[in-house]
Each structure stands twice: as structure tokens, then as C-alpha cells.
Write a protein that binds this DNA or RNA. Structure first.
Length: 378
RNA sequence: GUGACCAUAGUUUAAUGGUAGAACUGCGGGUUGUGGUCCCGCUAGUGAGGGUUCAAUUCCCUCUGGUCACCCCA
């Protein structure tokens, strides 16, 4: 029953619904159409590390344009994002047409999917396992030999150029394969042609041509991407590709798009495991007004309203308590400044402000306090 | 879909077929309005249901939840 429901009722990705949206609104949309979308999606699998039943995808797509400039833009955006998050990544790119070229050159077009599945595992399995699996899937001895031989030679390649040369040689008789190679080369050309002042953030060694990258999705027709974080055992945190006819299933054929999707939960896991979250993310308040009694709290209420009006995140401790308790609270919540106001301060119209990092304390009026704290914001 | 392992306080974890112990957190105290260290105290727990037993947190079964891997990755 659960399976029955999950097959029919779960949203598995954002791209297919996006294609439906585009078809439904085709007369209102001006192409090329770009959008981003962040929403939960579901998986009907049993959960395990990095795989949740519910998780969040952040999709970016451009539909209605064949230009490889779109692929480039998505790569730029991806680099930019992971640089900002301080996550060291490898962006793998491949092209579905190259995979087809492989299959064609090996005479395996009719067994494309099985072949791709093996190719995708090239790094993880031994030759022996590969043979077994191919055998199980019904490949002939001759075919197995051809595949295994090519896997062996592929494994010796290291640089992007070596790999490109290899596939060029391998696919030279396949028209579609050559087209895929050309697309990959064009993308690399674009990347290389970016002027230094704009490509300062581009570290091309982060971008790897990986012809064994397949992606499960069968709607991809051109470029495919996958991003893996370095220094951590975690599946891909980002993936995407070009789809030439996704809208076709909803009745609008031949509208090509390209998109990429970031797995928010896995990215969170990476940030968390690698301790890359900035320390100050839990800083919410800049200033705490201590509460020393009924009269004081009323007095502070007005002052807190004033600091808040000036854009300073302010708290007033919600009940009278020992000073120690309230200072502990400020420490625990990383509140950098505490305003201490008792009968003396009320009388003198001054505010005793304590810097919780240095321990320094001074008396100021409200305007000076606001000035001080505004100077701390940036 | 397959397999392995796990379930004890808010958290991390001990232990036993016979009173479930600790650490951290939280709260209170160490005399008045000055914190982060230290000392003392308090709160709080065996996932649910059934079975075996004089007695089950412990052994058995079912369920639920979780972890990891395979398959798969929409």
C-alpha cells in the first residue's frame, strides 16, 4: 500500500514538474525562461547515509535555449556557490552523447542502459566484478571482452586532455559521440576564455571531464554534471544536465533546457561534518537588557524599543533574575553587549554597557549606545 | 526490494534475570548589581505491545523507529 501510494503521489524532483509548468504556461512565458525553485522532494527508498526520505532540492533551470552559454552559466554559478560556502568540490562534467557514442562504437546501442550502469561504476568495482555483472545482464563474451578492455585503458587516463583525446579516438566513427565531445570542448573553451579578472574565482582544476559519469536520469540528452565535495565520504551534492525534450511528455515537443539541482540536506551535512558553518551563525541578538525588577524592566522596555528602531537586534531578559544568570544567558547565546540598568542608572539616565568579550564596561546615554552598536554592525 | 546492527534521562553513555550509575546540558545554591573557571545540590531514563519467569531494562516474538551496506538513485 505504501509503495502504491508513494509511486503515485510523491514528488521526486522539481524538474519534471517544472517542464509541466512550462507547457501549461507556454503562452505567458518569454523564452529563454529562467527560474530557480527550492522545495522538498521525496524518495521512496529506505534511508541511509546522505539519503533521506524527504530532502530539499534547489533547482536552477534555463529552458528554451540550446546555447552552451547556459551550461557555462550554470557551471559559473555552481563554482560561485561552493566557493562562497567554502566547500572544496570537484565538478564533473560529461555528455550523454558521448555515452551514446561509446555504446555505438562498441556495437552495444541496444544494451545502452546496462552498459551505462557498468560504466558508471567503473571506479568502484573490480574487473572481475564487472565481468560477473555483465555476464548476469546477458552480455556476450565478446562484448564483455571489448568493454573490459576499454575500461582498462580508460583507467590509465588522468588529465582532461588525455581523456578527451581518448574518447575522440574511441568515438571517431560515431557522429553523435563526436558531437558530444565537441560540446564538452566548447564548454571548456568558454571557461578558458574568461578574462582573468572575471575568472579569478575559476579554478579549472576543479572541473573534471569524466566520461564514466552517467547519471540515472534518462531524460538527459546532452551535458551532464555532478558535484562532489572533497575530503568527505558523501555522494554527489549537486547534479544536473541538459534535456532536449522533457516538455514533450506534456505535449510541447522540442523545447530544450538545461538545469542543475543542489541537494540542500547533503550540503548541510558536508558543512556540518567539515565544520564549515561560520561560528557566528547563531548570533541573533547584539544587545541584552538585563532585567533587575519591575520598575527597571519598564524603563528598559522603552530603551529596547529605541535600539530596535535603530536596527539593533535587542533582547530584554523576560523576568527579573540574578545578574549571574542573565550574564550566563548572554554568554550562552553569544550576545556581545549587555546593558545593565538598575536604580542608579535610572537616576543618572545613563546605561552601563558591558562588552562580553573584553569584560570592559562603560556608562553611556542611549544615543551613544546606539552609535556604538551601529558601528559594530556591518 | 535484500541483508546486518542498534534502541537506557534533553544529549553522550554505563550496568544487571533481583533498588538502573555517570558525564554534559538545564535549574537552584556558594549572601546585596558583574559572567565564562571551580565547588555543592536538584530535575530527569530502560521506544510500544505480547510471551517465558517468583521477578525482565536484560531472554524470546511482533511492531515502531534508527544506523550502515546492497539494489536503486526518479
Amino acid at each position: 500500500m505504501a509503495k502504491h501510494i508513494s509511486e503515485k503521489a510523491l514528488r521526486y524532483d522539481l524538474t519534471v514538474p517544472f517542464a509541466r509548468y512550462v507547457v501549461m504556461h507556454q503562452h505567458e512565458i518569454s523564452f529563454p525562461f529562467k527560474r530557480y525553485q527550492i522545495q522538498p522532494v521525496w524518495r521512496a527508498d529506505r534511508p541511509q547515509k546522505g539519503r533521506y526520505r524527504e530532502f530539499h532540492q534547489c533547482d536552477v533551470d534555463v529552458i528554451g535555449s540550446n546555447s552552451l552559454l547556459n551550461e557555462l552559466e550554470l557551471i559559473q554559478l555552481t563554482i560561485d556557490i561552493f566557493n562562497k560556502l567554502n566547500i572544496s568540490v570537484v565538478i564533473k562534467i560529461n555528455n550523454r552523447k558521448i555515452l551514446e557514442g561509446f555504446a555505438e562504437s562498441l556495437g552495444l546501442k541496444d544494451k545502452f542502459n546496462d552498459f551505462i550502469t557498468i560504466l558508471d561504476k567503473i571506479d568502484k568495482i573490480t574487473i572481475h566484478d564487472a565481468k560477473n555483472e555483465l555476464h548476469k545482464k546477458g552480455f556476450s563474451d565478446d562484448e564483455i571482452l571489448k568493454i573490459v578492455e576499454s575500461i582498462k585503458s580508460m583507467r590509465q587516463l588522468e588529465s582532461n586532455d588525455q581523456k578527451l583525446d581518448f574518447v575522440k579516438e574511441f568515438c571517431k566513427t560515431s557522429e553523435i559521440g563526436m558531437k558530444g565531445i565537441q560540446e564538452v570542448e566548447n564548454i571548456f573553451d568558454y571557461l578558458k576564455s574568461l578574462p582573468a579578472e572575471y575568472s579569478g574565482f575559476l579554478k579549472t582544476e576543479q572541473i573534471e571531464f569524466d566520461f564514466s559519469l552517467a547519471r540515472g536520469l534518462n531524460y538527459y540528452t546532452g551535458a551532464i554534471f555532478e558535484v562532489k565535495a572533497r575530503n568527505i565520504a558523501m555522494g554527489s551534492i549537486c547534479g544536473g544536465g541538459r534535456y532536449d525534450d522533457l516538455t514533450g511528455i506534456f505535449g510541447l515537443p522540442n523545447v530544450s533546457g538545461v538545469g542543475i539541482s543542489f541537494g540542500a540536506d547533503r550540503i548541510y551535512d558536508v558543512l556540518s561534518e567539515l565544520r564549515l558553518f561560520p561560528k557566528n551563525t547563531d548570533v541573533t541578538s547584539q544587545l541584552l537588557f538585563v532585567n533587575l525588577g519591575a520598575e527597571e524592566e519598564k524603563y528598559c522596555l522603552a530603551l529596547a524599543a529605541e535600539t530596535r528602531k535603530n536596527g539593533i537586534n535587542t533582547e530584554l531578559f523576560p523576568h527579573a533574575a540574578k545578574l549571574k544568570k542573565q550574564l550566563d544567558y548572554a554568554n550562552a547565546n553569544h550576545i556581545p553587549y549587555v546593558a545593565i540598568i538598575g536604580t542608579n542608572e535610572i537616576k543618572s539616565k545613563q546605561i552601563t554597557v558591558k562588552n562580553m568579550n573584553s569584560g570592559e564596561q562603560m556608562e553611556l546615554n542611549i544615543n551613544k549606545l546606539i552609535e556604538l552598536l551601529k558601528g559594530m554592525l556591518f
